[in-house]
Simulated assay, not measured.
Amino acid sequence: MSGMLRLVFALYLVCCVATQQNFNCYYEEKFLAKVYRLEYRVEMLEEKASKEDKDYKECMQCPDGWIQYKGSCYMIVEEKLSFDKARANCQKFNADLVHIDNADENTFIRNHLRTLKGIDFWIGLTDAATEGLFKWVDDNSRATFTDWYPSQPDNGGNREDCVHFKAIGNIQWNDRECYSTEKSICEKKIMF
């Protein structure tokens, strides 16, 4: 109950007791009790509507052609591009190459890629600045979660600095020459 309504209710009770109008006080008390219950119901409905609105927004924030998962939208780009061109292409959509934070997100993406069969996809991870120190291109943070294919990363030929999903076996990460052309995965965060 709002503070103002509580004050009005208290004043009515004081007035009823002071004036000894028991008959009128009874009905005024009943009326105010109903108002109190209605106000409580309105508060509950507003809270429920707010939660449903948030759930609705989570479902509706991704543009057509994008896939929603836990606060992000993902888009599979079919055009084969070098790592830098793939990133620039994602940025045209106010996105970046995918930044994979944890095993759940990685599994979600891998499961989706399995349906596409046999294709490699750039992700937004590179060690181009410092060999062996893999950082995400969107925020320059160090990778705390990785899912390397066995014996990777290997910096083959001393020139593999960009990371992609390797579409063999369990679809895991591999380092590759950044000038190679691959399909890519863009990601952008949902804005509320």
Results as ranks from 00 to 15, higher is better:
residue 46 E to Q: 14
residue 48 K to R: 11
residue 50 S to W: 10
residue 52 E to W: 10
residue 55 D to W: 09
residue 56 Y to N: 10
residue 56 Y to L: 13
residue 57 K to E: 11
residue 59 C to R: 15
residue 60 M to A: 12
residue 62 C to I: 04
residue 62 C to M: 05
residue 63 P to R: 07
residue 64 D to T: 11
residue 64 D to I: 10
residue 65 G to E: 03
residue 65 G to Q: 00
residue 66 W to Q: 01
residue 66 W to S: 01
residue 69 Y to V: 00
residue 69 Y to N: 08
residue 69 Y to G: 02
residue 69 Y to K: 09
residue 71 G to L: 05
residue 72 S to W: 06
residue 72 S to G: 00
residue 74 Y to T: 06
residue 77 V to P: 00
residue 77 V to H: 09
residue 77 V to K: 14
residue 78 E to L: 10
residue 79 E to Q: 12
residue 79 E to F: 02
residue 84 D to I: 06
residue 86 A to F: 05
residue 87 R to G: 08
residue 88 A to W: 01
residue 90 C to W: 02
residue 92 K to D: 02
residue 95 A to Q: 04
residue 97 L to Y: 03
residue 98 V to D: 02
residue 99 H to E: 13
residue 100 I to A: 01
residue 100 I to T: 04
residue 100 I to M: 05
residue 101 D to M: 11
residue 106 N to Q: 12
residue 106 N to R: 09
residue 106 N to H: 11
residue 107 T to D: 15
residue 108 F to Q: 06
residue 108 F to K: 05
residue 109 I to M: 04
residue 112 H to W: 11
residue 114 R to D: 02
residue 115 T to Y: 08
residue 116 L to Q: 13
residue 117 K to R: 11
residue 118 G to N: 12
residue 119 I to V: 15
residue 119 I to W: 09
residue 122 W to N: 01
residue 124 G to V: 03
residue 125 L to W: 07
residue 125 L to Y: 06
residue 128 A to H: 11
residue 129 A to E: 15
residue 132 G to N: 07
residue 133 L to N: 15
residue 134 F to V: 04
residue 136 W to E: 03
residue 137 V to T: 14
residue 137 V to Y: 08
residue 138 D to M: 02
residue 138 D to I: 02
residue 143 A to I: 09
residue 144 T to Y: 10
residue 144 T to I: 13
residue 146 T to C: 05
residue 146 T to E: 08
residue 147 D to Y: 10
residue 149 Y to P: 00
residue 150 P to A: 05
residue 151 S to M: 08
residue 151 S to H: 10
residue 151 S to L: 13
residue 153 P to I: 01
residue 155 N to Y: 12
residue 156 G to F: 12
residue 156 G to T: 09
residue 156 G to P: 00
residue 157 G to H: 06
residue 158 N to G: 13
residue 159 R to V: 13
residue 164 H to I: 00
residue 172 Q to C: 05
residue 173 W to F: 07
residue 174 N to W: 08
residue 174 N to H: 09
residue 175 D to G: 02
residue 176 R to K: 08
residue 178 C to I: 04
residue 179 Y to D: 12
residue 180 S to R: 14
residue 181 T to V: 12
residue 181 T to L: 07
residue 183 K to T: 15
residue 186 C to Q: 04
residue 187 E to C: 02
residue 188 K to T: 05
residue 188 K to W: 02
residue 189 K to P: 04
